[in-house]
Structures are given as C-alpha cells and as structure tokens.
Nucleic acid binder design. Structure first.
Lengths: 237, 237
DNA sequence: TAAAAAATATGATATAAATCATGTTGTTAA
DNA sequence: TTAACAACATGATTTATATCATATTTTTTA
C-alpha cells in the first residue's frame, strides 16, 4: 500500500472545519500556536493504514476529514472494534499508556489526518486540565462501549449482532435521506468482522433481514427500510 | 443481602496500608485533609454488592482491603469483566462519564472500602493534574484490556478461555506457594462467567485440564501444577 | 471488452458447546 | 447427624454457526 501524502500547513485548530467539536478545540491560543507549528497533515486513501497494531506510536492523530475503522487481530480473525469520523481523535490510547499500538487504524474512505508529535500532545495533557478532563470523559465512554461490545458479541445471536451492527453504522455515519442507504458502505466481510460472524453467515443473515423486509440489498448497498424493527430485532431475547 | 457496616475514621491516605501504591496517594496534604474529612469507610461481606449496574453513582471507591469482581448483565447471563484488589479504585468510570453505573461491583471476599463523595473526587481531578494523568493512564490500560477480552472471548476456544481465566486469577490474586492453590477461590459458575462458557462446559474443561496434568482439583479448590503449560494451552492456535 | 479477480450467494456438512437430564458429592442448617 | 440444599459432575441431545464446496455476480485490470 502506497505511503500517505504529507502536507505542511500552518492552519490552527480554531480555523478547522471541526472547530469547536474536536477535542483539540480546547487548546488555548498559545497551545494552538505550538500545535500548528509542529503538526503535519496527511492524506490516506481508502484502505490505507494510519497506524498498525504492535508498532510504536510517535504521534497523536485528529481526523480532519474522513472515516476510520479500528481493528485488532486475534490469531486468524480480525475484529473491528470501533469507528472514528471527522473531528474524532485516534492513537491517543497508546501514547497515554506508553505502549505500542494495540489496534490498527485503517481509512474506510479517503481521509485527511492531522498529526501532532507525541510529546507535544502529552505536554498539553499536563498543562491543560480542560483537555485532560475531556480525555478522561472520552475514555470513560469508550470503556463502557467496549464492555457493551463484550456483552453483545458474546451473548447475542448472530442475526441480532448483524442488526446491532447496522444500527451502529447508521447511528454513527448516518444514512441517505432518500434511499435509506448507509452513508458509509462496508463489504459483507467487514460487516462480518464487526458483528463477529463468518462472512457466509453474515450474507445469510443479511438475506434473512431482507426477507423480513427490514433492509434492502441493492447492488451490494444496504438500505435500512424499517429502523424501529431493526432495533426490536437487535434487542429482543 | 444485609447493608454494609459504616465506620467513620479521620485517617489520611498517607497513613493507609496501600500508600503509596493507591492512586489516591497522589493527593497533596490539603487534598488529603479534605478527603479524610469527607470519606467514609464501609465493610462488605463476601457476596455483597458495593454498587449496582443501572444505579446513580454518588461516590468514588477505594478498596482499603479485600477483593471485588466487576460484572455486567446481558439479558440472562452475567459476564465478569474485571477484578479489583486492595489499593485499587472502583466506580470512577460512571462518575467521570456522568452516567449511571454500567457494571456491578461485588465483594469476592470480606472487603473494606473507602468512599469519597462524587464532587470531592471530581474536584480533585480538576485541580490535581498528576491525579488526572494517572487516571488517564489507568483508563488507557483498562481499555486495552477490554479490547483484549473481546478478542479472547470471541476468538478462542472454550478450554483456552478457561486456561486464560486461571492465568488471570493467578496473575492478579496470586497463588499459595506450597499447595499451588489460587489465593482467591471462585466457584465453577463464576469461572464460567469469566470465561464465557456454560457452567457444565466449565466443569468439563477443568476436568480436561486436570486430565492433562496442568491443574489439580482438590475439594473444589483449583491448584495450578504446570503454569507454563497452562500458558501454552491458553495461547495455542 | 475479455479475462481475471474479488465479492456475494447458497447448499451441504461438521463441530463446538449449549441445553437438558440425572446423579453425586460437599456444605449448611435444623 | 440427618435433612435439605447448593455445588460439582457426567452423559445424551440439540442447536447455532463455522467450514467446505461450488455458483453467480460484480469489479478490476490487461
């Protein structure tokens, strides 16, 4: 896979399209000056890795524009664990834990990412309590979500996990108002890796949901027809 | 289940048996004074809940002495997610996320817990950057562990998960030097809830490990004879 | 625009582990 | 010290879903 393209810019967070939603909007003027001085901006094509499991982290990443999946390998199979989109941050867990990356981040659409050197970010955490508190909250929510994923993946039947997965994608990335198609399209194999089923089972389960009239499958694209029913399926015993 | 017994003490963290290992050792003199003024100490019998999933949190908890399991219900089954012991803190996730408890904490041996009112703890987080940074690190490690649990529970075969569970208990709570028995004993049903298998399967798999000479089952007590082999089993494909 | 490759689809079979059933052992309480 | 109960144990059966096999469709590339 080709290397990402690097762009050097001096733009500040307060002028970013994600301001004030991005967590880095909490930097004060001085911190923003430092950040803009040291940050680089990189473009990743769909499918390119931003960082890889097992590698040493040197940077903190902000998604300027685009979408990312975070996954982890366990022997043979890949498990997709969570997602990120414009304005989200990635790669901070390893920096804060002072460990190598425990997940792999891959662009699921063409994605532009701002990178900040490790120590600049860690310094900001020390001196900006608003930032560190926001980070604490981010972790607290993520930890709950990880716990929920454990319960969902281990205690729900396959079709329910597929339903849950479609809900997750719709809630996070949205859907087309007219066609009801999911804004970000995943292959059957990817959906399987989110729901933790085999690709074949995933295909069968999607077919089952289609048969029940909950979704529509048009040219590999998934349209959610009956979102309430999808929720009922995902949450039923 | 009977209510916990409450004791009021004015002792400070710096005089605690867990000093300086407990994260609260990072409080400065003034903060320790405030903490000692507002904190209460409670004793929980084995099996008693310290807090329950779904309830609103009002306190931050430090385990003065004892052991705790953190679990979560998913429909029918209970999944044990992690453990805590003397010097560990619990209940902070919900406080920081400003959400109800997402897990239940139950004493797995007689346990004494210090409680600090929610706002005292949250204030300390704001003003003590050393504390908030340590909390960030705690979250970062816990999040990785949650991710690892996802992979282990969804991708490893039952026996391997049982082996993994025994390793986890041994590493976290230790084992008796002479008998090789685990320091904290769990019922078969609890081990099943950690490894995410049925109780019957858990029993069968323990029997299998015994047959292989890796462990010994004496009066419901589990002794680890061959730890290296247990690790090999847990990590083999 | 044909050929190759990748993704989707579907049927048949295998399998790990849950569930159900019943029995045994160990612990608690009358 | 026996009865009652809970925990542990083991066999038989069922079930969900993975795996294997083979098509079909769509996309990519030569």
């Amino acid at each position: 896979m080709a290397k990402s393209t690097t762009y050097l810019t001096n733009s500040k967070c307060k002028d970013c399209i994600n301001y004030p939603n991005c967590i880095m909007s909490l930097l004060n003027n001085n911190e923003q000056n430092i950040a803009s001085k040291y940050k680089t901006t990189n473009k990743y094509k769909k499918g390119q890795a931003i960082f890889n499991e097992g590698f040493t982290p040197y940077s903190f990443y902000c998604i300027l524009k685009g979408n990312v999946k975070l996954s982890r390998i366990g022997g043979e199979k890949i498990q997709i664990l969570r997602f990120a989109k414009s304005g989200d941050i990635i790669g901070y867990r390893s920096l804060i834990a002072d460990e190598n990356y425990s997940t792999t981040a891959i662009a699921i659409s063409d994605t532009t990412v701002c990178s900040l050197p490790k120590n600049i970010f860690l310094d900001e955490l020390i001196y900006n309590s608003e930032l560190s508190l926001k980070m604490l909250k981010q972790f607290a929510v993520e930890l709950k979500q990880a716990d929920e994923l454990i319960i969902n993946l281990t205690q729900k039947a396959g079709v329910k996990r597929i339903a849950e997965t479609l809900i997750k994608i719709k809630d996070f990335y949205g859907q087309n108002d007219k066609t009801n198609a999911l804004n970000i399209s995943f292959s059957r194999n990817e959906i399987a890796s989110i729901a933790c089923v085999s690709t074949e089972s995933c295909i069968r389960m999607l077919a089952e949901l289609k048969k029940q009239g909950v979704i529509n499958l048009v040219n590999r694209e998934i349209q959610i027809n009956d979102f309430p029913k999808l929720k009922i399926i995902a949450n039923s015993k």
